[in-house]
């Protein structure tokens, strides 16, 4: 252990020096070292040299990281550091932005998602996403949940289905109930499933969005600052929920709130200005004893 500490100190010094003196190569090597997180078992997601440009803006630079299965990975960093961009690359939501240009590779269970043959529908079913602001559809709670399964043809409802004897009302109810229970919302809404989802409180709406995402049975759940628009009580509910979800799902969560990252995540990746991934390690390690001076400054509040 003592050796590691020594190494760290040396490394820190050399970084601070190199800020003035060049030696880009060693900086690069150090960064690779600090961002290489070792864990048992195969990675769920494996990102290799990912670069993203929005027009001329280089938003993400050479990011490589492996994300372990069934755990919570937090992405933290100051505004505009590229953490949300990174998250949106994991289910190819950035494809929806016309000016985005993406290079590099992202593998889900060993298969490349940026392969031209990738089935986007299948990918997004496996990698679900929860957004910063709660965005339920202007439909009933039930329809919000069953929207995904219905559109994927997993359940059929409606007059035609009923006439053909293929009415899956019971299955629909089952999915709705399971998803809402998983999202810890069932108790609060079980008696008003047919009410408009927009009538729920902000925290309930966000949990509904999580339930909607769970209804299509994803493997990975990406969350983009899921609690930033919520009050403290709703936030703590979402945090508890994230920890529970990690037992069955791989959760990647972007957050602005460092305490939140420390509370809920198993490992933390720190992005700093310019779209660089600076350090990625066990959460305890990052918050108690980071390798990089810049990360320490950021975490202790000296910068960012």
């Amino acid at each position: 252990m003592s050796e590691t500490i020594t190494e760290t100190e040396t490394a820190t010094e050399s970084t601070t020096d190199s800020a003035q003196t060049t030696s880009g190569e060693s900086q690069e090597r150090l960064r690779e070292e600090w961002t290489h997180y070792r864990f048992d078992g195969p990675p769920k997601l494996s990102v290799e040299d990912l670069n993203v440009w929005y027009g001329d803006d280089h938003a993400l630079k050479d990011v490589s990281m492996d994300i372990p299965e069934k755990s919570v990975t937090a992405l933290i960093g100051p505004s505009g550091c590229g953490k949300s961009t990174f998250l949106r690359c994991l289910n190819r939501m950035n494809d929806r932005i016309n000016i985005a240009n993406i290079e590099g590779s992202v593998e889900l269970d060993g298969s490349e998602i940026y392969d031209p043959n990738t089935n986007l529908v299948e990918l997004r079913k496996r990698v679900g996403m929860v957004f910063q602001a709660p965005n339920p559809f202007p439909k009933s709670i039930r329809d919000n949940i069953s929207y995904g399964p219905r559109k994927h043809g997993d359940i059929e409802t409606g007059l035609l289905a009923r006439l053909l004897g293929r009415d899956d009302k019971d299955e629909e109810q089952e999915i709705v109930e399971r998803s809402l229970k998983q999202a810890a919302l069932w108790e609060e809404v079980s008696d008003r499933l047919d009410d408009n989802a927009l009538g729920l409180s902000g925290g309930q709406q966000q949990r509904l969005c999580i339930a909607r995402c769970l209804a299509v049975d994803p493997e990975v759940i990406l969350m983009d600052e899921p609690a930033s628009a919520l009050d403290p009580i709703a936030t703590s509910k979402i945090e508890d929920l994230i920890e529970e979800l990690a037992e069955d799902y791989t959760v990647v969560v972007v957050t602005h709130n460092m305490q939140q990252a420390a509370r809920i995540s198993d490992q933390t990746a720190v992005f700093l200005t310019g779209g660089e991934l600076v350090e990625y390690d066990d959460t305890d390690k990052i918050f108690e004893n980071p390798e990089s001076q810049r990360v320490e400054d950021y975490i202790t509040g000296k910068f960012g």
């Binding site: 289910n91 939501m93 929806r96 986007l120 529908v121 299948e122 990918l123 997004r124 079913k125 679900g128 996403m129 957004f131 965005n135 339920p136 559809f137 202007p138 929207y147 995904g148 559109k151 994927h152 969005c209 909607r212 995402c213 299509v216």
Partner: peptide
């Protein structure tokens, strides 16, 4: 709404 729907693979 469009984002949410796209993220569900619709």
């Amino acid at each position: 709404y469009r984002d949410a729907s796209a993220a569900l693979g619709v």
